[in-house]
Amino acid sequence: MKPLVRITYCPKCGWMLRASYMSQELLTTFVDDIQGVQLEPSEIAGRYTVFVDTEEIFDRKREGRFPEIKELKQLVRNRVNPDKDLGHADH
């Protein structure tokens, strides 16, 4: 079964649009590699965390920032299809 990407975000912080944008980018890039992207509103204030299946690959609080889309695509790629060429996102 293909992996599922899950983005948990703080709805009170207004981060749903950011999560939606990132999910669209991931779905477009990994159309053949992932099952889908699940957006999950968090009850924890300030949360923005990205998982591939159960593995946390990015946490805003730990990193002190949001992921760049290029970086997020690389992190997902490394777990779902390490040989995939991301084109300009790899350079």
Rank of each mutant, 00 (worst) to 15 (best):
M1Q: 08
M1D: 11
K2G: 01
P3L: 00
L4R: 09
L4Q: 09
L4D: 01
R6H: 03
R6S: 14
R6D: 01
R6F: 01
R6M: 10
T8H: 07
Y9K: 00
Y9H: 04
C10R: 08
C10T: 03
K12W: 10
C13F: 12
C13T: 02
W15C: 05
M16W: 00
L17P: 06
L17M: 10
L17I: 04
A19V: 03
A19Y: 12
S20H: 10
S20E: 12
S20L: 09
S20G: 09
Y21R: 05
M22I: 09
M22C: 04
M22P: 03
S23P: 05
S23Y: 10
S23I: 02
Q24G: 15
Q24C: 07
E25F: 10
L26K: 03
L27M: 14
L27F: 01
L27I: 08
T28M: 11
T28G: 10
T29M: 15
T29L: 13
F30N: 01
V31G: 01
D33T: 03
D33F: 14
I34G: 05
Q35N: 12
Q35D: 14
Q35P: 00
Q35S: 14
G36F: 11
G36A: 03
V37N: 00
Q38T: 12
L39M: 08
L39A: 08
E40C: 12
P41K: 08
S42E: 08
E43Q: 12
E43H: 11
E43S: 13
I44L: 13
I44K: 14
A45E: 11
G46H: 12
G46M: 06
G46F: 13
G46E: 07
G46R: 06
R47A: 12
R47M: 12
Y48W: 15
Y48V: 06
Y48C: 06
Y48R: 02
T49A: 13
V50Q: 02
F51H: 14
V52K: 03
V52G: 04
D53G: 09
T54F: 13
E55G: 06
E55K: 14
E55F: 00
E55Y: 00
E56N: 09
E56Y: 05
I57R: 02
I57A: 05
I57F: 11
F58E: 02
F58R: 02
D59S: 15
R60Q: 12
R60F: 01
R60P: 03
K61C: 03
K61D: 07
R62K: 14
R62V: 15
E63Y: 10
G64A: 04
R65K: 13
F66T: 02
P67Y: 01
P67M: 05
P67R: 03
E68C: 03
E68S: 13
K70F: 00
K70S: 15
K70A: 12
E71A: 07
E71K: 09
K73Q: 14
K73F: 07
L75C: 06
L75M: 15
L75K: 14
R77L: 09
R77T: 12
N78K: 13
R79G: 06
R79P: 05
V80R: 01
N81T: 10
P82M: 10
D83R: 14
K84F: 02
K84I: 04
K84N: 06
D85N: 15
L86E: 02
L86A: 06
G87S: 07
H88I: 11
A89V: 05
D90A: 13
